[in-house]
Simulated assay, not measured.
Amino acid sequence: MYFSCFSDVDECLQGDPGPCGYHANCTNTPGSYLCSCFRGYLMSAEGCKDVDECVLAAVTGLQACGSGAVCTNTPGSFTCSCPAGFVLALDGHNCVDVDECNFEESCRRELGNVCENTDGSYTCVCQAGFREHRAACVDVDECVEEQHVCVGRGECENTLGSYRCVCQRGYRGNGTHCTDINECLSGDHGCDVNARCGNIIGSYFCQCLQGYSGDGHSCYGQSEIPIHAV
């Protein structure tokens, strides 16, 4: 009587990456072995191949990522990303709108403007004196855009969200109604004590008295003329 003993060969231990190749689990069986692909891979004649979940979803209609999200295939898996104005939800598949009005500063809400959230963005509702420009409320320079907003002797000064009219130098008033200042009567002039002050509209002039020389702001008698003035 003859006996022959055969010991099983564990094919899974032979070589690298082994008989199943990469991306697969090898399970030894009596006289053979079994291959099972990792998750995200499918068995083919060449071994386990990556499944493009993004393409598969488009073919089957089963969305890998939620509506509005961008699917990107990766080895054995996929990732979902969201466009600007959205963030990925905790489930990793869906996009959630970002309410920019919770943190934006471009609308200048402290000045009375309003921020309105929209799907993926926001808009500014600007009050009078501001203009919406590139999702921000910017000041309108009324002095440039409405050049005759101040009349008469008033001059326009732009302010944030508005403007004001101020009287020109030599005039007083509220900027809308300006009257000439008589500097000679108010004493708000620089004439020498030996000069005559003459008021003119919006200004004044100084003229040295007879017997004095100078520009009216500085007048000298004949014996007082400084050397540099001779």
Rank of each mutant, 00 (worst) to 15 (best):
S7L: 10
A69E: 00
A84K: 13
P83D: 01
L88E: 01
S81H: 09
A229G: 00
A64T: 08
D99P: 07
L13P: 00
C101S: 04
E155T: 12
S77Y: 09
L88R: 02
D10W: 00
Q14C: 12
N174E: 01
T74P: 02
Q63M: 12
G76N: 01
T74Y: 04
Q14P: 02
A195E: 00
D141R: 06
T176C: 08
S36T: 13
D8F: 03
Y2M: 11
E100P: 01
A136I: 11
G216S: 08
N25D: 12
S203A: 14
L111P: 02
S121Y: 10
I200N: 15
G214T: 10
F3D: 14
V87G: 08
G40R: 02
V70K: 07
C95F: 08
K49T: 06
N73T: 08
Q127I: 15
G47S: 06
H148K: 08
T29G: 02
A64K: 02
V9Y: 05
C143W: 00
L56W: 08
S203W: 04
C219Q: 02
D50C: 12
C95P: 00
C137S: 10
N199A: 08
F205D: 06
S77W: 04
I227S: 14
L62I: 12
F103D: 05
R108D: 05
V166S: 11
P83G: 12
L88T: 02
Y212E: 01
Q222D: 14
N174T: 06
R169L: 05
G76E: 03
L111I: 11
H189E: 10
A69W: 00
V51R: 07
S121M: 08
V114R: 14
T118Y: 12
V59Q: 13
C35Q: 04
T60N: 04
S44L: 03
S223I: 13
A58P: 01
C37I: 03
V114L: 13
G76W: 00
F3K: 12
G211N: 10
C12M: 01
C35E: 05
L160W: 13
A135F: 14
G187P: 01
V114P: 03
D119M: 13
M1K: 14
C54R: 06
F205P: 00
T159V: 07
C156P: 03
V138W: 02
G18K: 05
Q222V: 14
D192N: 11
T72C: 00
Q147I: 10
D139S: 03
F3Y: 11
S213R: 15
C126P: 04
G154I: 01
Y220S: 14
T74H: 07
Y41Q: 03
R164K: 15
C101N: 08
I201H: 14
G221I: 06
C206G: 05
P30E: 07
G68C: 12
G112S: 10
A128E: 14
E53L: 04
G66A: 10
C115M: 07
E155M: 11
T74W: 03
E46K: 15
